[in-house]
Design a protein around this nucleic acid. Structure first.
Lengths: 189, 189
DNA sequence: ACTAGTCTGTACCGATTGGTACAAAATATG
DNA sequence: CATATTTTGTACCAATCGGTACAGACTAGT
């Protein structure tokens, strides 16, 4: 049944990088063809619905990465604290120490959100949800766990904004350290 | 010497709202003419350099608002804690309880940042700087003040992202409460 | 009322936008 | 090798992009 040349899958990370750099509206077909090396023919063959479908594929890919590298480890770690430590490592890796922006966060800020509302919504819902559950396991009260999870996820997003604004990855590093510390000190509601 | 009809100044807030909703790249001349009611003639009369000049004017306006309503009060409050409380009130007002996005933050995320690097950079530098100084006055150690200021400003930005992603202003409200609390508990380095 | 300066609507520009059509090339399967 | 399918480059499309030109309508000071 025809083996794909493993192409479509290979383009997605490149597309993701492009969308991160230029945002959804700022990403034109011409920069896509330039950066991917694929002509419109191939592009529309892999993604018949154009930019919209590319973005959907990317969001899917990101969601998959987080599920595998962040959510699952959080859920499945016997030691919740270890799971959380692992999350911070994965986050630093994924966002390249603050040099890379969060695609979903950038979509959330402008009217792009409306086109991908459910994907954007569920990305953050999943993240805060799983993290809260893990924090609870580690000794946080139910409400404290939810609040801390929201605080950590928002803190990461804000750190990405600030680090890029200041063009200084150290801002991101400091924020990660603070947030990780905060996730360690369990407290009741 | 000709009194202006107080026009240019009146358009800026409208332009700001448009750029917030669509981002820089996503804001087309046609949505600008639609929303402002001004034709290209007037637009290019007030802003001969087009979108770029509009964005500069908006960034200027925002910087002015924060200087007057956030930074100055922080600096000049005899009671630093009162100044900080005032900041949070102003922030909630400005960002309409999380329903409005931070223009500068949204610029920071994509390649728009490069066109307005100094404005973006100094907006956050000023904010964290003044806030850190005030926290120090309120009893924080020098390093603790800097860290907390960064934490608070990043926290606000992240809360805006998360609140919009979830389409839930309550996320923003909870974050403000946490951050305000955190700014109250002074600690040494 | 006259005039100088400010403001604005309209028509227009070349370039680029996202997207389609399709024949040729490459590839996989029999 | 033959054939069916997938992949690709190229040419093309209408629509929109940001921006300019400019004549005419305003407005203000005299």
């Amino acid at each position: 049944m025809v083996r794909k040349l493993a192409e479509r899958g290979d383009v997605i990370p490149v597309l993701a990088e492009i969308f991160r750099e230029h945002g959804f509206a700022g990403t034109s077909l011409s920069v896509i063809t330039d950066r991917t090396g694929l002509g419109k023919g191939s592009l529309y063959h892999f993604f018949p619905n154009g930019k919209e479908e590319m973005a959907k594929a990317i969001l899917d890919d990101v969601a998959g990465w987080f599920e595998a590298n962040v959510f699952a480890p959080l859920r499945e770690s016997e030691d919740p604290a270890a799971g959380i430590d692992h999350m911070f490592k994965a986050v630093v890796l994924f966002f390249q120490s603050g040099r890379r922006v969060c695609l979903v966060g950038s979509f959330a800020l402008d009217d792009t959100r409306d086109r991908f509302a459910s994907e954007v919504q569920s990305y953050f819902a999943a993240w805060t949800g799983v993290l809260a559950a893990t924090l609870k396991r580690s000794g946080f009260g139910a409400k404290a766990a939810r609040e801390t999870a929201e605080d950590v996820v928002a803190g990461i997003q804000g750190a990405l904004v600030l680090a890029r604004a200041q063009d200084d990855p150290a801002v991101f590093a400091r924020a990660m350290k603070r947030l990780q510390q905060r996730a360690r000190v369990a407290y009741a509601d």
